[in-house]
């Protein structure tokens, strides 16, 4: 179980998906991937500990707390990548999922470790639930 971050604020998080944008509210104590799944957005992941980069997203805007990730570097943040399996919002966010291959290229350029077998599978989002 992930330790609570002590932040009960709600943030608007926009996912830029192939079928269009989806916006959901995510609490500051929640991991972004968990919240997305609960909202019916299917996103890739593997280790779910902030290591393998399968869940990598490009951060189009906003700030994410990656303190729960086992392997996340300042260079990743500067290059605009996040690992949402262990990332908590610290502001409203706009994210583009499916960035594992881009993140691997960035890690290679930065001489940082990364698994080589992970790919971004087809990313889908379930239809909006009727309110």
């Amino acid at each position: 179980m992930a330790p609570k971050a002590g932040n009960d604020r709600l943030y608007q998080v926009v996912f830029d998906l192939p079928g269009g944008a989806r916006t959901i509210e995510i609490g500051g104590d929640e991991f972004i991937l968990d919240a997305a799944r609960r909202a019916g957005i299917k996103l890739p992941s593997l280790c779910e500990r902030g290591w393998c980069c399968t869940c990598a997203v490009k951060v189009l805007s906003g700030t994410i707390d990656q303190s729960a990730s086992l392997r996340y570097y300042e260079e990743d943040r500067r290059a605009g990548f996040a690992l949402i399996c262990t990332g908590r919002p610290r502001s409203d966010l706009s994210l583009r999922p499916g960035a594992v291959e881009e993140m691997r290229a960035h890690r290679d350029t930065s001489h940082l470790p990364v698994p080589r077998g992970t790919r971004a599978p087809h990313i889908t989002s379930l239809p909006e639930q009727p309110s």
Binding site: L46, C47, R49, W51, C52, L70, V114, P115, G117, T118
Partner: peptide, 16 residues
């Protein structure tokens, strides 16, 4: 070891 697909299973208390 660096490219392992799963995280290092560190001993708790060993600061990762």
């Amino acid at each position: 070891a660096d490219r392992a697909g799963c995280p290092d299973a560190y001993l708790p208390g060993a600061q990762n």
